[in-house]
Deep mutational scan, measured.
Amino acid sequence: SKDAAQYVYDEAQKGVTQVTVNGVTFKFDNWQKLLKYAQKLLN
């Protein structure tokens, strides 16, 4: 959902490398990768 994507995006902006959405945890090597993933979700 857009809300989940926005949440992931906001978390990535904080510099975190993992985020949990609806009980599913996504882990990334660095926050830039998390940010890229979030941007994909938002598009």
Results as ranks from 00 to 15, higher is better:
residue 19 V to D: 04
residue 9 Y to H: 09
residue 27 K to I: 15
residue 38 A to M: 12
residue 13 Q to M: 09
residue 15 G to E: 09
residue 18 Q to I: 11
residue 43 N to G: 03
residue 40 K to S: 06
residue 25 T to I: 12
residue 8 V to Y: 11
residue 17 T to I: 12
residue 9 Y to F: 13
residue 30 N to G: 09
residue 9 Y to G: 14
residue 41 L to K: 00
residue 10 D to L: 11
residue 4 A to E: 11
residue 5 A to S: 06
residue 6 Q to D: 15
residue 13 Q to W: 11
residue 12 A to N: 05
residue 29 D to W: 14
residue 24 V to M: 13
residue 30 N to R: 05
residue 23 G to W: 13
residue 11 E to T: 11
residue 9 Y to A: 12
residue 26 F to G: 01
residue 32 Q to I: 06
residue 26 F to A: 09
residue 8 V to M: 03
residue 11 E to V: 13
residue 42 L to R: 01
residue 9 Y to C: 15
residue 32 Q to E: 07
residue 27 K to A: 15
residue 6 Q to A: 05
residue 29 D to C: 14
residue 24 V to I: 05
residue 43 N to E: 05
residue 17 T to Q: 05
residue 33 K to P: 02
residue 3 D to M: 10
residue 30 N to T: 14
residue 25 T to P: 09
residue 29 D to T: 07
residue 5 A to R: 02
residue 6 Q to W: 11
residue 25 T to D: 08
residue 40 K to N: 05
residue 28 F to L: 13
residue 38 A to F: 09
residue 25 T to K: 05
residue 35 L to D: 00
residue 2 K to H: 08
residue 43 N to P: 01
residue 33 K to M: 08
residue 31 W to E: 00
residue 7 Y to H: 15
residue 3 D to H: 07
residue 24 V to N: 14
residue 36 K to V: 09
residue 11 E to S: 03
residue 8 V to T: 07
residue 6 Q to I: 03
residue 25 T to M: 10
residue 32 Q to L: 13
residue 24 V to W: 12
residue 40 K to E: 07
residue 34 L to I: 02
residue 12 A to T: 08
residue 7 Y to G: 15
residue 1 S to K: 12
residue 21 V to I: 12
residue 1 S to M: 13
residue 10 D to T: 11
residue 35 L to K: 00
residue 14 K to F: 11
residue 17 T to E: 06
residue 13 Q to R: 07
residue 37 Y to K: 03
residue 43 N to A: 06
residue 24 V to K: 04
residue 12 A to V: 09
residue 29 D to L: 14
residue 39 Q to R: 04
residue 24 V to P: 07
residue 39 Q to Y: 13
residue 37 Y to A: 02
residue 22 N to V: 15
residue 35 L to V: 02
residue 31 W to P: 01
residue 25 T to W: 08
residue 33 K to E: 09
residue 33 K to L: 08
residue 5 A to Y: 05
residue 22 N to T: 14
residue 43 N to C: 15
residue 30 N to K: 07
residue 8 V to D: 15
residue 27 K to Q: 08
residue 13 Q to V: 11
residue 22 N to Y: 14
residue 38 A to W: 08
residue 6 Q to M: 02
residue 19 V to I: 12
residue 19 V to A: 05
residue 10 D to M: 11
residue 28 F to C: 12
residue 24 V to S: 04
residue 20 T to F: 06
residue 33 K to W: 10
residue 31 W to F: 05
residue 2 K to R: 12
residue 12 A to F: 12
residue 43 N to V: 03
residue 29 D to G: 12
residue 19 V to H: 08
residue 26 F to Y: 08
residue 42 L to Q: 01
residue 33 K to F: 06
residue 23 G to A: 14
residue 13 Q to D: 09
residue 13 Q to I: 12
residue 16 V to P: 12
residue 23 G to R: 10
residue 29 D to E: 10
residue 4 A to W: 09
residue 12 A to I: 11
residue 29 D to H: 11
residue 40 K to G: 02
residue 19 V to T: 04
residue 37 Y to D: 04
residue 11 E to C: 15
residue 16 V to A: 09
residue 4 A to V: 01
residue 22 N to S: 13
residue 34 L to D: 00
residue 36 K to F: 04
residue 28 F to R: 02
residue 34 L to K: 00
residue 5 A to W: 12
residue 42 L to P: 00
residue 25 T to S: 13
residue 19 V to Y: 01
residue 7 Y to V: 15
residue 39 Q to E: 06
residue 9 Y to N: 10
residue 2 K to N: 10
residue 15 G to L: 13
residue 41 L to D: 00
residue 12 A to P: 08
residue 40 K to W: 08
residue 9 Y to V: 13
residue 25 T to G: 07
residue 32 Q to F: 12
residue 39 Q to M: 11
residue 10 D to P: 09
residue 43 N to Y: 04
residue 38 A to K: 01
residue 3 D to F: 10
residue 8 V to S: 07
residue 37 Y to E: 02
residue 12 A to E: 06
residue 2 K to Y: 03
residue 24 V to H: 03
residue 28 F to K: 04
residue 42 L to C: 11
residue 38 A to E: 00
residue 43 N to R: 05
residue 16 V to M: 04
residue 35 L to C: 02
residue 15 G to H: 09
residue 32 Q to V: 10
residue 37 Y to I: 10
residue 23 G to V: 15
residue 8 V to C: 15
residue 37 Y to C: 05
residue 1 S to G: 12
residue 3 D to P: 08
residue 14 K to T: 12
residue 6 Q to Y: 04
residue 5 A to T: 03
residue 6 Q to G: 10
residue 13 Q to F: 12
residue 39 Q to F: 07
residue 24 V to Q: 08
residue 8 V to K: 09
residue 7 Y to I: 15
residue 34 L to Y: 01
residue 31 W to K: 00
residue 21 V to H: 10
residue 42 L to W: 04
residue 20 T to Q: 08
residue 20 T to S: 10
residue 22 N to L: 13
residue 42 L to H: 01
residue 7 Y to N: 14
residue 30 N to D: 11
residue 30 N to S: 07
residue 42 L to T: 01
residue 28 F to V: 09
residue 28 F to S: 03
residue 32 Q to N: 06
residue 35 L to E: 01
residue 15 G to R: 02
residue 23 G to E: 12
residue 2 K to S: 06
residue 30 N to V: 07
residue 26 F to I: 13
residue 8 V to G: 08
residue 21 V to G: 02
residue 1 S to D: 11
residue 34 L to W: 02
residue 18 Q to V: 08
residue 28 F to A: 06
residue 22 N to M: 15
residue 41 L to T: 00
residue 35 L to Q: 01
residue 23 G to T: 13
residue 40 K to Q: 05
residue 21 V to E: 13
residue 30 N to E: 06
residue 15 G to Y: 13
residue 32 Q to G: 06
residue 9 Y to I: 10
residue 30 N to L: 07
residue 41 L to H: 01
residue 35 L to P: 00
residue 33 K to C: 11
residue 3 D to R: 03
residue 18 Q to F: 13
residue 30 N to Y: 07
residue 4 A to Y: 12
residue 35 L to H: 01
residue 39 Q to G: 03
residue 35 L to M: 01
residue 26 F to N: 09
residue 5 A to P: 15
residue 36 K to I: 06
residue 4 A to L: 08
residue 36 K to Q: 08
residue 4 A to I: 06
residue 2 K to F: 09
residue 32 Q to D: 04
residue 16 V to I: 06
residue 19 V to E: 01
residue 31 W to N: 00
residue 23 G to Y: 13
residue 9 Y to L: 10
residue 24 V to L: 14
residue 39 Q to N: 03
residue 27 K to D: 14
residue 3 D to Y: 02
residue 24 V to A: 04
residue 41 L to G: 00
residue 5 A to H: 04
residue 6 Q to L: 09
residue 13 Q to A: 10
residue 17 T to A: 09
residue 19 V to L: 13
residue 13 Q to K: 09
residue 34 L to V: 01
residue 9 Y to S: 13
residue 4 A to G: 05
residue 11 E to W: 14
residue 24 V to T: 02
residue 10 D to Y: 10
residue 23 G to F: 15
residue 31 W to Y: 04
residue 11 E to G: 05
residue 24 V to R: 05
residue 1 S to C: 15
residue 31 W to I: 10
residue 25 T to L: 12
residue 11 E to F: 13
residue 7 Y to M: 15
residue 18 Q to T: 03
residue 8 V to N: 11
residue 14 K to D: 13
residue 21 V to T: 12
residue 43 N to Q: 07
residue 29 D to A: 07
residue 42 L to Y: 01
residue 30 N to I: 15
residue 13 Q to T: 09
residue 12 A to H: 09
residue 38 A to R: 00
residue 30 N to W: 15
residue 39 Q to K: 02
residue 40 K to F: 04
residue 17 T to N: 06
residue 29 D to P: 14
residue 12 A to M: 11
residue 38 A to G: 01
residue 25 T to F: 14
residue 20 T to K: 02
residue 15 G to A: 12
residue 3 D to V: 06
residue 5 A to V: 08
residue 10 D to G: 11
residue 36 K to L: 08
residue 7 Y to P: 15
residue 23 G to L: 14
residue 29 D to S: 10
residue 39 Q to S: 02
residue 1 S to H: 12
residue 37 Y to H: 04
residue 7 Y to K: 13
residue 41 L to M: 02
residue 10 D to F: 10
residue 25 T to H: 11
residue 1 S to V: 10
residue 41 L to Y: 02
residue 21 V to R: 01
residue 36 K to W: 05
residue 11 E to L: 13
residue 32 Q to M: 03
residue 24 V to D: 01
residue 29 D to R: 04
residue 14 K to E: 11
residue 35 L to I: 04
residue 9 Y to W: 15
residue 6 Q to N: 02
residue 41 L to Q: 01
residue 11 E to M: 07
residue 38 A to D: 00
residue 35 L to T: 00
residue 13 Q to Y: 05
residue 31 W to L: 07
residue 43 N to F: 05
residue 18 Q to N: 07
residue 35 L to Y: 04
residue 2 K to W: 14
residue 1 S to R: 03
residue 17 T to S: 02
residue 10 D to K: 04
residue 33 K to I: 07
residue 20 T to V: 13
residue 36 K to P: 01
residue 22 N to E: 11
residue 15 G to P: 04
residue 1 S to Y: 08
residue 18 Q to M: 07
residue 2 K to M: 12
residue 38 A to N: 00
residue 12 A to G: 06
residue 39 Q to D: 04
residue 24 V to G: 01
residue 31 W to Q: 00
residue 19 V to G: 09
residue 20 T to P: 11
residue 38 A to S: 01
residue 41 L to P: 00
residue 40 K to M: 10
residue 8 V to R: 02
residue 5 A to L: 10
residue 29 D to Y: 12
residue 6 Q to E: 13
residue 30 N to M: 10
residue 26 F to P: 10
residue 14 K to N: 12
residue 31 W to D: 00
residue 30 N to P: 03
residue 2 K to V: 14
residue 24 V to C: 15
residue 36 K to S: 06
residue 1 S to L: 12
residue 33 K to R: 06
residue 13 Q to C: 13
residue 2 K to G: 06
residue 33 K to A: 05
residue 18 Q to E: 03
residue 20 T to D: 02
residue 23 G to S: 03
residue 16 V to H: 05
residue 7 Y to D: 15
residue 41 L to I: 06
residue 17 T to L: 09
residue 23 G to K: 09
residue 13 Q to G: 07
residue 10 D to W: 14
residue 9 Y to M: 09
residue 2 K to D: 10
residue 9 Y to Q: 11
residue 20 T to H: 10
residue 4 A to N: 13
residue 14 K to I: 14
residue 22 N to G: 11
residue 10 D to C: 13
residue 1 S to F: 12
residue 42 L to S: 01
residue 34 L to M: 01
residue 34 L to P: 00
residue 27 K to H: 12
residue 17 T to V: 10
residue 5 A to Q: 04
residue 23 G to P: 01
residue 26 F to K: 06
residue 26 F to E: 09
residue 15 G to N: 13
residue 15 G to S: 08
residue 43 N to M: 06
